[in-house]
Amino acid sequence: MSIHHLFFNSVVATLLWCGVAAAQTAELDSLFDRLAQADPSEAEGIRGQIETQWSRSGSPAMDLLLRRGEDALADGNPALAVDHLSALIDHAPDFAQGYSLRASAFYAQEQIGLALDDLRTALELNPRHFNAMRGLAVILQQLDRPQEALEVYQRIRDIAPHIDGVDMAIDRLSVELDGTSL
Rank of each mutant, 00 (worst) to 15 (best):
E110N: 10
E110K: 07
Q111F: 04
L114N: 01
L114E: 06
A115K: 04
A115G: 04
D117I: 00
D117F: 01
L123M: 05
E124I: 05
L125M: 07
L125C: 07
N126L: 01
N126S: 06
N126P: 00
R128L: 09
H129A: 08
F130V: 03
F130G: 09
N131G: 09
A132Q: 11
A137K: 08
A137L: 04
A137E: 09
V138Q: 09
I139P: 02
L140Q: 14
L140I: 04
Q141C: 14
Q141L: 10
Q141N: 08
Q142A: 11
Q142R: 13
L143W: 09
D144C: 02
R145Q: 15
Q147H: 13
Q147D: 15
E148F: 12
E148C: 06
A149D: 04
A149K: 03
L150D: 11
L150I: 12
E151A: 04
E151M: 02
Q154C: 15
Q154T: 13
R155C: 04
R155V: 06
R157I: 02
D158N: 14
A160N: 05
A160G: 03
A160D: 11
P161G: 03
I163N: 10
G165M: 01
V166N: 12
D167G: 06
A169H: 09
R172A: 09
R172V: 10
L173M: 13
